[in-house]
Amino acid sequence: MWQDREIRFDVDTRMLRLIPGEFTLDRIENVEDTKGNNGDRGIFRITNLRLIWHAQAMPRINLSIGLNTVAGIQSKKASSKIKGETESMYVTAKAPQTRFEFVFTSLGTAQAVTRLFSTTQSINRAYETTRLYRELKMRGPIVDEDGRLRILPGEQQVDKIDGVWNLSSEQGNLGVMICTNLRVVWFATMSVGYNVSIPYMQLANCRVRDSKFGLALVIDTTPQSGEYILGFRIDPEEKLKNTCRSINSLSKAASLKPFFGISKRESDTHSDEESGEIAVRATRVDAFAAYFSDGLVSSEPRGPVFNEDLGLAVEQLRPGFSLAQLWEVHVE
């Protein structure tokens, strides 16, 4: 899967189609790729894996920016051929041995400008906080002090196997293996901090093979997660084989309907007839966005203005924000 981990330019439009488990969170029309295609109107889509932009007149001119490559999102002034000097969204993205900067400008209302930035920022934060769904993790806070797995939202525990030996050291470590609908977890009985969490999307192969410890359960992970080979000893042999079959079955089910960690609330969605997709629309202004830095050094800082309600001078707010919105507290 490359969608969340790569930056691709002008790909075949078929590669912009959503893969299983990927869905559109917002779709914004009249967005300009100000840096690469200044003057061209386009459509900007935010999915749970990537940012997609394509020109309205010529869809083969497009961008696919994986959320895993995004290093920063800022709101700064830019010069648009259509809109002139205006507030735009700057996206910094990293690739092997290079960095890219993308500038997107909403050509719509002030509300659309705010929505472009706040929605992208919110989804990027959600992606960062849901890495356990997608990435192999070792020695993480995945088990509490009482030896109970910290269940993720949308996760269901399927099986728990006691007396599982991790064969990574000469003498082995006794522990517990837990299989859920999303991942395989093992942790040591004597030290729950010694653990590993393997999402099924990072599991390349699971099999039973002979080792110097006898028959062992061997899990191979994908190149994306480091190509680890993890061995576990489970007795008796029948229990070992049943565990292997169970993991393979759960992995197959997860691959048919993958869950990448970001969910959409059906109550906030509506059908987009033009794209045939369900889109989550921004329902409020993100106050965090109003305070988000314009950069460490700003050539045109926003000057102070007198606010009659506060009786104080405050920094001028960006278009689309009001002082009242900054005092609102939203509980998700």
Score class of each variant (00 low, 15 high):
residue 43 I to S: 05
residue 286 D to Q: 12
residue 301 P to Y: 06
residue 294 D to L: 10
residue 274 E to N: 07
residue 8 R to Q: 12
residue 16 L to K: 00
residue 236 P to R: 09
residue 47 T to G: 02
residue 254 A to S: 14
residue 20 P to N: 12
residue 108 G to D: 03
residue 235 D to P: 00
residue 280 V to D: 03
residue 264 K to R: 14
residue 165 W to M: 15
residue 97 Q to E: 13
residue 96 P to F: 00
residue 144 D to V: 11
residue 295 G to D: 12
residue 330 H to P: 05
residue 173 N to V: 14
residue 109 T to F: 05
residue 85 E to V: 13
residue 318 R to E: 09
residue 21 G to Y: 06
residue 231 G to S: 14
residue 44 F to V: 10
residue 126 A to G: 02
residue 144 D to K: 12
residue 78 A to Y: 07
residue 323 L to T: 09
residue 226 G to I: 11
residue 56 Q to Y: 10
residue 142 I to L: 05
residue 54 H to Q: 14
residue 107 L to D: 06
residue 245 R to F: 10
residue 269 T to L: 14
residue 232 F to D: 08
residue 231 G to C: 04
residue 24 T to D: 03
residue 158 V to P: 08
residue 204 A to L: 13
residue 110 A to L: 09
residue 158 V to H: 10
residue 179 C to D: 04
residue 223 P to C: 08
residue 141 P to S: 11
residue 62 N to P: 12
residue 291 Y to F: 14
residue 293 S to Y: 11
residue 318 R to P: 10
residue 282 A to G: 15
residue 202 Q to D: 11
residue 174 L to Q: 13
residue 332 E to W: 10
residue 68 N to Q: 09
residue 118 S to T: 15
residue 278 I to T: 11
residue 125 R to D: 08
residue 209 R to P: 00
residue 5 R to V: 00
residue 76 K to I: 13
residue 208 V to G: 01
residue 265 R to V: 04
residue 208 V to R: 10
residue 300 E to T: 13
residue 67 L to F: 00
residue 189 T to W: 01
residue 72 G to A: 14
residue 284 R to I: 05
residue 228 Y to P: 01
residue 15 M to A: 06
residue 159 D to K: 15
residue 18 L to Y: 01
residue 133 Y to C: 07
residue 117 F to I: 13
residue 152 L to G: 02
residue 37 N to M: 04
residue 285 V to S: 14
residue 283 T to F: 07
residue 138 M to G: 02
residue 127 Y to N: 08
residue 104 F to M: 04
residue 326 L to D: 07
residue 72 G to M: 11
residue 246 S to L: 09
residue 197 S to C: 15
residue 319 P to G: 09
residue 150 R to T: 08
residue 58 M to E: 12
residue 110 A to Y: 07
residue 146 D to E: 08
residue 115 R to H: 08
residue 83 K to G: 06
residue 290 A to H: 06
residue 70 V to F: 00
residue 287 A to V: 10
residue 38 N to H: 05
residue 217 L to K: 02
residue 280 V to P: 00
residue 310 L to R: 05
residue 202 Q to R: 15
